[in-house]
Design a protein around this nucleic acid. Structure first.
Lengths: 328, 328
DNA sequence: TCGGGTCTTTACATCGTTGGAACAACGATG
DNA sequence: CATCGTTGTTCCAACGATGTAAAGACCCGA
């Protein structure tokens, strides 16, 4: 592999001059520049990033810490983050925590400042005192603990409210919620949105209709739905805190021969691609994932480049109405 | 951030002695070792990986080059590869190609040897002469071009044959195939498995029943299915070359009020988690993704450690029978 | 006490790159 | 013609770690 030294020898100039050409320094004689460029071409020179970063004190990597790549929402997000990071010549290192406190702590401690320049965190279990970060970071979504780290994400309360309002506008009165969670910040916010929508329509809040879910996987949604269907009086609609829960819920409903949306309307959250093709397709809150990815990466870039402290960013969302609430 | 120098000063020894302790060198006096360890603890020293790798000529990263993370199969695989790589203290760098030749070429050229120690490639469009790699690599799946790079994956012909045999054993005689592709190696192999299964059952091979798909997304499956349903004589079963195509196909069938499996049996390939919860759930070929991830990473690790040249690895698969072929 | 081997530690060079200082060449200015 | 500022180039040190070689400490038997 060619180094600056090799290129310099070939071009008959000093190493630094080659470095200057590579880095776009203006004051290089046209003649030398040409010779260097030819030599670069001939040797196929590629900078040694390790060495460059050692010198510059940067690594060229950012970390993306998330629960699990096999969850569609995070896979889609990761895809967008990678693309956004590329625009700033950043490579993305993905760390999976599997939603556990131990996993999140491990990820955080492994993020030494020589490994990454910055980090995007999507924590689920972290406590306040865990946030002793050695690099700039942003949080995705919301988090219950109050830490001095910028957040990027949608207004969860408003989004949940919009989802439930939609159900109410269709005439549903006994609306369940799946996905309550003791520690998850977003769960509390979405529950609050659910509450508010009920309240503004003067519908009663019924504890029996709020079902917790520990993992937000499809299986949890199915289990929660079964317990709802076992109630003396079934709900006529259900708001699930993510699409996977909703998919599981629709599956459980189908197994009990409960028709969606005729007998039960379902709304999800995340707008996974999967939900567009399910039968019935799923009405869902659609956060602008691309906006989230870009905002997070841009925020970090500005932070790293100029050191400025940063505000939170609220990204837009929309409600995608599909067959699970309105029959085609 | 503490460096070896800081630790050395604190412990009152030379930098190299600290380095020796950090790297587990045996011959360090117990007394010095203790003092160094205390100093390491006190400073919270973490090695600068860039510097270490510059010196060692290793980077500690491997690349995983795949079409797109938002495709469930690749997301699941990436998740497993990251976990497997961790066992060898490797970090994983994910590069997305979006299935284009340009994207794959770009990914390959960006993989200088100072960026990654090795690469796992899942190419779709690459040509023979593109494989001028500067680091050890393995290919996932099959590829039409014949290059001297180890492959890891299942026997695609046998797997496709098993899928179609299953349909035949259920009495289907007019079996379609969705996913033919001019350049994709796996597509040719799966088509060959389909052919063989038909041949061994003395069923005719009908060109009209083989539908190409360019992108293997849900939308492509839906479009292909619609064209099949427009045929004068509809198929009574369809074998899709991946689960996304199958999900799209089932969606299109539902829109035309064609019942699955009563009017049309469907088999997919990949066994995505999504397919377990779809309605109806999807019968699918299940490659052992964990085995694939481990085999690929282990292969590369041995290659990098000992330099040995490596054979291909064939990983197991199974057929998961669900509602899309056998009503519950 | 000396020679010889085994431990243990250190100084130094090095990996490939870039920042900074030094220096050289140049035309322009007074 | 001396001085000056602007360009253009080179040399040297440094980023933080580790391999090498050599030196120092130690213990053994002769």
């Amino acid at each position: 592999m060619a180094t600056l030294k090799d290129v310099a020898r070939l071009a008959g100039v000093s190493v630094k001059t080659v470095s200057n050409v590579v880095n776009g320094y203006s004051f290089v004689k046209p003649d030398n520049r040409r010779r260097v460029e030819e030599a670069l071409e001939a040797t196929g020179y590629r900078p040694n990033l390790g060495a460059r970063n050692l010198r510059r004190g940067r690594t060229g990597f950012i970390a993306l810490v998330l629960p699990e790549l096999s969850i569609p929402y995070f896979a889609e997000l990761a895809s967008l983050v990678i693309a956004a990071a590329q625009e700033h010549e950043w490579n993305v290192l993905i760390e999976q925590t599997f939603g556990t406190l131990a996993g999140e702590r491990a990820a955080l401690t492994s993020l030494g400042p020589h490994l990454v320049d910055a980090a995007i965190l999507s924590p689920e279990a972290l406590q306040v005192d865990d946030f002793q970060l050695s690099v700039p970071a942003v949080l995705l979504g919301e988090h219950a603990v109050d830490v001095p780290i910028s957040r990027v994400g949608i207004d969860n309360v408003a989004a949940a409210q919009a989802a439930v309002r939609h159900l109410i506008s269709l005439g549903h009165e006994r609306i369940a919620a799946i996905g309550a969670h003791p520690h998850r910040g977003t769960a509390a916010l979405r529950l609050e949105g659910y509450r508010r929508a009920l309240a503004e329509a003067s519908l009663p809040f019924d504890d029996d209709l709020v079902v917790p879910a520990l993992n937000y996987h499809r299986a949890d949604g199915a289990a929660a739905m079964r317990s709802l269907l076992d109630l003396p009086t079934r709900p006529d609609a259900v708001f699930c805190f993510n699409d996977l829960l909703a998919i599981g819920a629709m599956r459980a409903a189908a197994e009990r021969l409960v028709r969606v949306p005729a007998d039960l309307a379902v709304v999800g959250f995340d707008n996974n691609e999967e939900s567009v093709y399910s039968s019935p397709s799923l009405t869902s809150i659609a956060p602008d994932k691309s906006a989230i990815a870009h905002a997070a990466v841009d925020l970090l870039h500005r932070r790293v480049e100029s050191g400025e402290l940063l505000d939170d960013v609220e990204t837009p969302f929309s409600l995608q109405v599909r067959e699970s609430t309105v029959a085609r």
